[in-house]
């Protein structure tokens, strides 16, 4: 199949070994995104494993100023993922935490700094990993929809995710993607920000929703579940029938029930 890039399909030892950082939100709220990620990675020729000791990347502690706990969680994560060729997360935000911020948690020169740095260099956001590292150019999925795409802040600014999801989505049969204005503006999620300053957060997500609605798209896609739950939750509260999916679900061809939709 043209979408599969396998270096030596018969030789399991030559295939990249990927540790999937599921991310806490995917683990708890939307396992389907995790399975979509596994499928995409395996289709692209990776051997995927999910270390059982992972919990969360530690961002809530880190961004909350609790660097002590952030460091402790980072050490666990580093240990769990060190055996892999790559660490891949279906989230720009969590991948950004490992890539950009783990090394800063430890003083330069310390052993842990070197380990964090080494892991950082092997850490990727899912879609950019598929496109930039594995060279995936297209997928075999179909998804009948007019969609628009939200650039999540960390993915865009820490991990350089912008063109990759759009290019891969262009290969999805039946799907069109229309750009919204200011697709790179924050949706107001911001981790704990959204519950610490709910009124400000609501204003931001309202502006994001208005721009989504202005495109006339029936589907919103994005690469970070935090943003997507925030936007989907607000769209639902305001009774806008826009369906929301993680980009991995559409690329893997497994998009069924949208975020916040009732089971069938």
């Amino acid at each position: 199949m043209p979408n599969r890039v396998r270096q030596s399909p018969d030789d399991a030892t030559a295939r990249p070994r990927v540790g999937l950082l599921v991310t806490c939100l995917v683990d708890l709220f939307r396992p389907a995104v995790g399975f979509a990620a596994v499928r995409l990675l395996e289709d692209a020729g990776c051997v995927v494993d999910v270390p059982a000791v992972q919990t969360c990347c530690g961002q809530p502690a880190y961004n909350g100023g609790d660097s002590g706990n952030a460091r402790a969680i980072a050490k666990r994560t580093i240990e769990a993922f060190e055996p892999f060729d790559y660490v891949v997360a279906p989230s720009g935000s969590c991948a950004g935490m490992l890539r950009e911020h783990y090394p800063r948690l430890f003083p330069t020169g310390a052993g842990w700094h070197g380990r964090a740095q080494a892991l950082a260099e092997r850490t990727h956001e899912l879609v950019s990993f598929l496109a930039d590292v594995l060279g995936v150019r297209e997928v075999a999925a179909r998804f009948e929809a007019d969609a628009t795409y939200h650039d999540s802040c960390s993915g865009l600014r820490e991990m350089g995710v912008r063109g990759q999801p759009r290019r891969l989505l262009a290969s999805v049969g039946g799907l069109t993607v229309a750009e919204m204005r200011d697709s790179d503006a924050c949706c107001g999620f911001g981790g704990t920000f959204c519950v610490k300053y709910p009124e400000i957060s609501t204003r931001l997500v309202d502006e994001k929703c208005a721009k989504i609605l202005a495109t006339g798209a029936g589907v919103l896609l994005g690469g970070d579940l935090g943003c997507l739950m925030n936007i989907a939750g607000r769209l639902a509260r305001e009774s806008h029938p826009v369906r929301v999916f993680h980009v991995a679900e559409v690329l893997a061809g497994t998009a069924g029930r949208g975020i916040g939709e009732r089971g069938r």
Binding site: R30, G233, R234
Partner: peptide, 24 residues
């Protein structure tokens, strides 16, 4: 305890089973 979120937004419900459980 989640009024900060649910005051203005619905909370998408989790699937019930976590990824880690399903993966195991």
């Amino acid at each position: 305890l989640a009024g900060g979120w649910t005051g203005t937004r619905d909370l998408p419900a989790p699937a019930g089973e976590t990824f880690m459980a399903a993966w195991a």
